[in-house]
Write a protein that binds this DNA or RNA. Structure first.
Lengths: 266, 266
DNA sequence: CCTTGATCGGGTACGTTGTACCCAGTAATA
DNA sequence: TATTACTGGGTACAACGTACCCGATCAAGG
């Protein structure tokens, strides 16, 4: 096959590892570990970023770290759990997050959308990972917390806030899936690699289909114009319309400091 | 592993097979084929619907049809191409599509969204298939053509029409991905199967995280209320807002019969 | 200091996949 | 009837995840 994949290992083990930093460490007998979980996760992410998810297997990760394949299993229960850790780890902040204090709801949500899109562009393999059950690790939670800042000055129910975040996030993800048709790092000269070749292959069939009269509306499209859309454009269009749609509600609930954290505790 | 997956085989072979009905058939020497591509695709879809994508392998498909594993390769070049065929085949109309003639743009798009969501619910494995390159087969094209009916009475550019369809489709897909956390058909009593158990495992860690003070906004959420969202609700919220957002534009471009097909050919 | 036993590195090997290759049986054509 | 393209499908191998094992290591107790 080309690019097998899955997500989510045993949640018990995944959770343990995700929150490992918060567990106390005591000294133990035996040799010092040669690796850390961080090193393995970092190497695995580098590998996936560079060579695609298809190249992510335990032997390759081990080779990346110059250790034996089975040594990885001293730190990580299996590949599924490793993927869980990778997914959370790539959500780590990159340092150029803005301060939400001076931003209104629209700015926060727009930042959320655009940073999510660049995130997918940087780690396209994430879109291939089968995120059945959401593994909420520290980094993912951090992102959620950041997003909630959009509603600091609004009197919205928790449910509505989550609904809006889900909408923005889901929109970007859905569009990214359609467009970030990541060209497999063309190490192997497989059947077809580039996007151009791909369309070239389909074209004659599509052409004949258009001429068949079975797709009257499609055949009237100016193909050149119709498909001239980048993921950025698509996200911008969708988000603009969506934000315009919720704007009345956001304005109606504007109440400075309504939800900002830390008020009632001081 | 648990649920390996991928999509897209050799596009040349996939395209040939997708459009095979339009190719002429001539009589040939040798024994009559015992199977058809349709039978294989149907069996594979039944298998995936029933047992999940994890159970979809060539040996199981062959067993389903009571033939030898390798016989499948007489009809289908490989698993990747079979998946391409499956994806297109499930897009076949189910007979209860409404007539778009009496529907306005909003009704068409709303139907598109809701039918897409029920589609994902019926074939959750589709969400796991890695749809890198879109394989545009006859059924997928038919769906696109249907969607374009929303703009029959509107004077929109092709590009804008595609943008809107992409938005609706992407939104539903993105949300479906977050929510249709398909519970693996629990044939194997694996580590954790049900959604409840899953949350039960995460809860203590989340609890501790909330208490850590690192996620001030998250920890102020009423968890019960905040996550009480179904995919239907989420889609409805997002779509309502989005449609409200594009409504002015749609009204501004209302021009009965502007794009309906077949006018200029009569 | 030496013993003990938990821990570490990692080699070997097996089960599950996709599928290349091969051979024997079959049926339209010459 | 002979030819030959085509069919069913068995065997076998490569890639992968990982169970299991052995020997090396080193904190703690004597």
């Amino acid at each position: 096959m080309a690019t097998p994949q899955t997500g989510a290992g045993d949640p018990v083990r995944s959770s343990e590892l995700l929150w490992r930093a918060f567990e106390p460490q005591h000294t133990r007998p035996g040799p010092k570990p040669r690796l850390t979980v961080e090193q393995i996760v970092t190497a695995a992410i580098a590998l996936a970023d560079r060579d695609g998810l298809g190249a992510l297997n335990m032997r390759n990760v081990a080779a990346e770290l110059d250790v034996g394949t089975m040594s990885l299993y001293r730190y990580v229960p299996g590949k599924g759990e490793l993927l869980d850790l990778m997914v959370d780890a790539v959500n780590a902040p990159d340092g150029d997050e803005p301060d939400t204090a001076g931003m209104d709801w629209r700015e926060v949500l727009e930042y959320l959308a655009s940073s999510t899109l660049t995130f997918y562009a940087a780690h396209p393999w994430i879109l291939e990972v089968n995120q059945k059950r959401p593994v909420l690790g520290p980094q993912s939670l951090r992102g959620l917390d950041f997003a909630l800042a959009a509603f600091d000055d609004h009197d919205l129910s928790d449910r509505e806030a989550i609904l809006i975040i889900t909408a923005v996030f889901g929109t970007v993800t859905g569009i990214a899936l359609s467009y970030l048709i990541q060209d497999v790092p063309a190490d192997q000269g497989g059947p077809v690699s580039t996007e151009e070749e791909w369309w070239e292959v389909q074209l004659p069939y599509l052409q004949r289909a258009m001429e068949s009269g079975r797709f009257p509306r499609m055949s009237r499209l100016d193909q050149e114009d119709a498909w001239n859309v980048t993921p950025e454009t698509a996200v911008r269009h969708t988000l603009d319309a969506y934000l315009a749609g919720i704007a009345p509600r956001m304005e109606a609930t504007y109440r400075p400091g309504a939800r900002s954290p830390g008020r009632d505790a001081t």
